[in-house]
Design a binder for these strands. Structure first.
Length: 595
RNA sequence: GGUUCCGUAGCUCAGUUGGAUAGAGCAACAGCCUUCUAAGCUGUGGGUCGUGAGUUCGAGUCUCACCGGAAUCACCA
């Protein structure tokens, strides 16, 4: 419609003022709600052709359009804005075509599908997942669904940080203080059990440092010479040398952690197509670095550490291999990137990683580019903001980490309380109830996180539980459940919904508003895909729910006597429910049929 | 200190390539269940869009300076 209007305006200016207008001077936008009309032409840019006041110009163009274009039912001019009113017939016909589309996302399909890797989650094997990971996982998974829905081939990957000195810490602590404790013997989830020993290590280590300092050792020396740290370093050496006992322990504890992670991932509803382990990719990284050194792309320092000089790119010197030849974080990431490209020949590799690593990814790209990997342009750091508490960052030392499993559990319990209080599910079995509570609790959590612009830092207040009213997941789920309820009732009374024939229907204001909003769905999804912003879809679903609830409140659907109008409202409800379901699905949020 | 990002109602957040009188929700207050689910709907109050300049017909949006906050600048990951 906008395109047609543009053409018409162009034609109008040509005939009325005898001038050719550049396309970008014709600005058509949706009319703001407080004004009468559907589309608005901003006339300011056209004044140079009309040589007249904004009001007069608007009037002239408006009259011309109404006369020549039957779909325009009327117009009004306010200041420099020409508001065009489109006939209800046009809107209804537009909507009718929507109902016979195969998919509501036909217009969102990209003309040139790409192979896209989305890396997300990236956990560390000595800590359970926390709120920050939840944001990461939800964003990554939603991005996968959105990009896939637009026609791309998307591969979900995860890179597990399973090697390095920090991993040895929890291993050592378990060995020394664990007394053979296992997830089975303790009843603890594997990742939490390992996390417990990591914390224990830090505690004991700290005590040893204190002791040494009191005995007169200086702080740095104490940190280095504490017995626990010495043993950890020995263990790392053994690990790198492939010592059987250490490797076995490592494997055993890893298996506990992975079982724990799997449980959390499952609860969150996310999964992966391919998991990479840093314990594998660091080797590839080393090889790449050494071969680049041979080509003089990198240089070797006196102490035989290897560096990249990125001052040309406005960056700094970056260490790639330590003087003892071991790998650093960057080495691993280089290896991972190359391994992935070799495996998938991706067009894009999207890293869902927090904005604290902006510099890291800048450097990663620069180095790969320097090494001659042309595909490095396809590496995209999807840099999302931190989740903060009202008092600032989560700190493990202060015990303010919000644990993922705890939070999910809490949300489900809250959902249960609210739901039982309302008492609408009394005829459900316990299993069915549990399923609904799960959907609602997780829906609330996921929506709460995804509705915020991913790039921005967000605040989470653990003291105030996440809401179930207003701009929330349950609100949208509720709207959906209501529509479903209408259709259940319709079925009982034998009322059918016919999508093909809407010609007889008359539409009220709310109905036209709904059609306008439904029309924006595919555009919103496209935008979300290009901007990497699930939040756009979340907020769209909210707007749509609000609009529908107003419609639902103001109009009777099944009680309407005029069958054509009743059918029209039913079809409108049906399409709304489909789009809400799909939109939320793109966010990874499930919709209960009743709640 | 360098670089990057952020600052919108008491709180949490929206605000398309610059467009009209800056919007929601929460919290507060006041209404609406004999009718399709009240997790809903309607209304009231609440703002110097961090501050100041500039660009322009027009700035929350673009530019610059300043104020405030965050991240980062490791032979940690």
């Amino acid at each position: 419609m906008e395109i047609v209007l543009k053409e018409k305006v162009k034609e109008a200016v040509k005939i009325l003022y005898n001038s050719e207008v550049a396309d970008d001077l014709i600005q058509i936008q949706e009319t703001r709600k407080d004004f009468k009309g559907d589309f608005t032409l901003v006339v300011f840019p056209l004044l140079r052709y009309s040589k007249n006041t904004p009001e007069k110009t608007g009037e002239t163009i408006g009259s011309y359009l109404v006369e020549k274009f039957p779909d325009i039912a009327g117009f009004n001019v306010i200041k420099g804005f020409l508001n065009l009113e489109i006939s209800d017939v046009w809107w209804i016909e537009y909507f009718r075509r929507m109902t016979i589309e195969k998919s509501h996302l036909e217009n969102s399909q990209v003309s040139d599908p790409e192979t896209i890797l989305v890396e997300y989650s990236s956990p560390n094997t000595n800590k359970p997942l926390h709120l920050g990971h939840i944001r990461n996982n939800l964003l990554g998974y939603s991005l996968f669904r959105i990009l896939s829905a637009c026609g791309h081939r998307v591969i979900k990957t995860n890179i597990v940080n399973d090697r390095g000195i920090h991993i040895c810490k929890s291993m050592l602590a378990w060995q020394k203080f664990g007394n053979g404790e296992t997830p089975a013997s303790s009843g603890m989830k594997g990742d939490h059990l390992v996390g417990k020993y990591y914390v224990l290590f830090e505690k004991e280590y700290k005590a040893q440092i204190e002791k040494l300092i009191q005995a007169g050792t200086d702080e740095n020396e104490a940190k280095n010479s504490a017995p626990l740290m010495k043993e950890t370093r020995e263990m790392l050496l053994k690990w790198e040398a492939g010592d059987k006992e250490v490797i076995d322990l490592w494997k055993k504890m890893n298996s506990w952690v992975y079982a724990g992670f799997d449980e959390t991932y499952k609860k969150l509803g996310v999964d992966f197509d391919k998991i990479y382990y840093e314990s594998d990719t660091y080797k590839t990284g080393k090889e790449i670095v050494l071969s680049a050194l041979k080509k003089d792309i990198l240089y070797r320092n006196e102490d035989s550490s290897i560096w990249a000089d990125l001052t040309y790119d406005g960056l700094d010197q970056k260490l790639l291999l330590r003087s003892d030849g071991t790998a650093v974080y960057m080495t691993q990431d280089l290896g991972t990137a190359v391994a992935r490209y070799n495996e998938y020949k991706f067009d894009k590799n999207i890293y869902v990683v927090g904005n604290e690593q902006n510099y890291h990814f800048q450097v990663l790209r620069a180095i790969l580019n320097r090494m001659g990997y042309t595909w490095s342009d396809g590496l995209i750091h999807f840099s999302y903001g931190m989740v903060e508490l009202p008092e600032g960052r989560m700190k493990s030392r202060e015990g303010t980490i919000v644990d993922a499993d705890d939070l999910i559990k809490e949300m489900q319990e809250t959902a249960m309380e609210v739901s039982l209080e309302l008492g609408k599910l009394s005829d459900f079995s316990e299993e069915e109830k549990e399923d609904v509570f799960r959907k609602i609790g997780l829906g609330a959590l996921k929506y709460y996180i995804l509705k915020v612009d991913p790039r921005k830092n967000m605040t989470f207040n653990p003291a105030e539980s996440i809401d179930f009213n207003g701009n929330t997941g349950p609100f949208i789920q509720y709207t959906y459940a209501r529509i479903k309820s209408v259709f259940r009732k319709a079925e009982q009374t034998g009322i059918l919904t016919e999508t093909g024939s809407l010609n007889e229907a008359k539409a009220g204001i709310k109905e036209i508003e709904l059609i306008k909003l439904l029309r924006k769905y595919s555009e919103t999804v496209s935008q979300a895909a290009t901007d990497y912003s699930p939040a756009l879809i979340a907020n769209y679903c909210y707007d749509l729910s609000r609009e529908y609830n107003q419609f639902y409140h103001d109009y009777s659907i099944l009680g309407e006597d005029d069958t054509a109008v009743r059918n029209f409202r039913l079809v409108l409800s049906k399409v709304t429910s489909e789009i809400l379901y799909e939109g939320m699905w793109l966010l990874g949020i499930e919709m209960p049929e009743r709640m």
